[in-house]
Design a protein around this nucleic acid. Structure first.
Lengths: 208, 208
DNA sequence: AGTCTACCGACAGGTTGTCGGTAGACTCTT
DNA sequence: AAGAGTCTACCGACAACCTGTCGGTAGACT
């Protein structure tokens, strides 16, 4: 007896399991056999829905980044909130940790998930840099910022936050705070914001 | 008739070919069969010198980064040159393009060389951040810089230059200059250097 | 003559992607 | 309502390839 589902349903089922397995074993070490065995479908079924293993990865990256970017966009567009709130909120919204689960994200970084990591980064950067640079231009006009290169400033901030906050496993609480303060300080300088203005905005968010 | 070479000679021969093939087809798509065929050795020979395909990659990364880091270190240690010269020189020395050839480096970035790229980045960052942060502390004392977080500043500068200067294929001359100026400006701000001081130092290097 | 080690190539086990064919769901007709 | 027809999700055997192993060989050196 053969279980039939809609294409969308089955695709999502495959992506769910792929996400688990990639997180557990890494993209290279997780085989398509692992995926079909865990779901209980045949080889041909998998390749009926996805043209290749990499296509699964791409779809997964798409699904994982879509939400994060949308959240970020929502924060940026909320013109009621103060500018600095929106900036920090947009960056915090990119921490996918919420959506994906805790131990998943520990494995996603570093060893054999380089491809996944790189593709996610590319999409996140591409999707969010325009939002942030627009925000910076807005800040230039109100006088909150003084940036000559809004696009590149946004790029630098996002790239660093993406890479540097990967390897925070194994840091003490103290080191973590230090790294966070350093990041805030450097963002302020890059944007030409008043010293401490960003730090205050972040406190506001966290105390809500 | 069997051709025998010293282990070191053969290892380098394997790394040479691996470098070509990874550049041509990417790490995933280049097989160990490709390597042994191109050299004309047997399967067992390859695995006599390297324990696995990944071990080949690691050795290659080691070889590629060793020179770059050494060059960087030499520049930093040259206390006769002015501080800003040493900073910019150390970063410029990391452009591996010289050593590896032109089209090789176009392929090394992006598609199926994510692992190689990530491992190189990790080694470069790990090797050069301490040099740069030491330089920043030196600049703090002379008054050239004003940085509260030398380690993180070095990290941010190096990570950005590594990622952002990957994707400069397809940019116009004008865009390239713009991106370079933005980078310089942001480095100055992060380090708390006088505006334009770094730009002048770079001019000095280029005009020699 | 003896030892060391670079070298060989067949082989096992596992991987991705293909392909002809099957079965369930849905529509259309009579 | 029942049968015919179509669409498409699904199946599983198979080809081609890939990595890593292992017992054994041949050249160099003592």
């Amino acid at each position: 007896m053969r279980i039939v589902k809609t294409a969308e349903e089955r695709k999502n089922e495959i992506l769910d399991v792929a996400e688990q397995l990639f997180a557990e074993k890494g993209f290279d070490n997780a085989s398509t056999n692992d995926i079909i065995k865990r779901i209980g479908i045949a080889r041909g079924t998998l390749y009926h829905h996805f043209g290749s293993k990499e296509e699964i990865l791409d779809a997964l990256v798409e699904r994982m980044t879509r939400d994060a970017i949308a959240r970020s966009k929502a924060v940026v567009s909320d013109k009621n909130r103060p500018l600095l709130d929106r900036l920090t909120g947009a960056i915090i919204a990119l921490d996918i940790n919420d959506g994906a689960g805790p131990e998943v994200f520990e494995q996603i970084h570093k060893p054999h998930n380089a491809l996944l990591h790189q593709k996610m980064q590319e999409r996140l950067i591409g999707g969010v840099v325009p939002l942030i640079s627009e925000l910076i231009r807005e800040g230039n006009e109100t006088g909150a910022f003084d940036s000559k290169y809004p696009d590149e400033a946004a790029e630098m901030i996002l790239i660093y936050s993406n890479i540097a906050f990967d390897a925070l496993a194994g840091l003490t609480e103290e080191e973590l705070v230090h790294k966070g303060q350093a990041f805030i300080c450097h963002v302020e300088r890059i944007l030409g914001a008043e010293e401490g203005s960003l730090a205050r905005a972040i406190m506001n968010i966290l105390n809500r």
